[in-house]
Design a protein around this nucleic acid. Structure first.
Length: 278
DNA sequence: CACGAACCCTGGCTGC
DNA sequence: TGCAGCCAGGGTTCGT
């Protein structure tokens, strides 16, 4: 589900409700997520205050007042939701794996039917060296992510451009949807060899990536099935998809007579206009 | 090394 | 209505 814009939206929602709050109760109902949760997860969080919520690529980072950091990932179907204040206590759902409560009664639930997501712990001093984070490429919305940087990372690579952009070590946070959308906006074919991208094309591609991610964040992310924001609201960027999920429909580029095609690359659907993406 | 397929797990949708 | 098959926003591992 969630790519960078969805994770960013969730982080902002959590920050609004959790920053400064002390966790008074943490319940782990299922610890066998993609990675097993640390046995002392609940104990290490209980009594700690949330200092701030950050994000790296598709990882949610919850910084606590003792230097501990919760690393969260939503996988394909994960949600991290703040319950409405008037929500009844009620029995937890089948896939509600972790529940948090703060001293002010704010309740947050981690739900993940497929359990491709994870929640784990590290400390601030080791954050950069954490195995989940240390190989990640640049943040696409950082000013430091430039055409020259992207081109250097693509140089010599013979994989299809789409596969290279999905590689979190090349650029961090893109997933299947936003790679397709960015390639469309940059008018580049998902099939071309990554290393063949020219200066001018890299420039277009970086601009397209930044634009599509920013627009998606502004729209609260994209909701296809599982994704919701931290407050349970849906995202609505899916209404602005130019290619994703539009196989057989006309290309939206003015004057282009192309029809969006779906193909399968490395087992995943790619959508592109064969006419205007070269 | 670099690539693609298989796999992790569950649910929703389609078509018979 | 039931069921088989396919599909899904992510990431890792294992062959070739």
């Amino acid at each position: 589900m969630p790519e960078l814009p969805e994770v960013e939206t969730v982080c902002r929602g959590l920050a609004l409700r959790l920053t400064g709050q002390r966790l008074v109760h943490v319940e782990v109902r299922r610890a066998d997520l993609r990675l097993p949760m640390p046995a002392d997860f609940a104990a290490r969080l209980t009594g700690r205050r949330v200092e701030r919520i950050g994000r790296r690529a598709k990882y949610i980072l919850i910084h606590l007042d003792d230097g501990a950091v919760v690393i969260g990932h939503l996988g394909m179907s994960g949600r991290l939701c703040v319950l409405p204040e008037d929500a009844p206590p009620g029995a937890p759902g089948t896939h509600d794996h972790v529940a948090f409560r703060t001293e002010d009664g704010v309740r947050v639930v981690y739900t993940d039917p497929r359990r491709f997501g994870l929640l784990t712990l590290t400390v601030t001093a080791q954050l950069g060296e954490h195995p989940l984070l240390k190989e990640l490429g640049p943040e696409p919305l950082d000013a430091a992510f430039t055409a020259a940087v992207l081109q250097a990372r693509l140089r010599g690579r013979r994989v299809p451009l789409k596969a290279a952009l999905l590689d979190q070590g090349v650029v961090a946070g893109l997933g299947n949807i936003y790679v397709c959308e960015a390639l469309y906006r940059a008018r580049l074919s998902p099939n071309r060899q990554a290393g063949t991208v020219t200066d001018a094309q890299a420039k277009r591609l970086v601009a397209a990536i930044k634009q599509v991610l920013s627009a998606a964040i502004e729209a609260g992310g994209s909701t296809l099935r599982d994704y919701v924001q931290a407050d349970g609201e849906l995202g609505f960027f899916q209404n602005q998809f130019a290619v994703y999920g539009r196989a057989g429909e006309p290309c939206r580029t003015p004057g282009c007579r192309g029809v969006i095609e779906r193909q399968v690359q490395a087992g995943r659907s790619t959508y592109a206009c064969p006419v205007c993406q070269k």
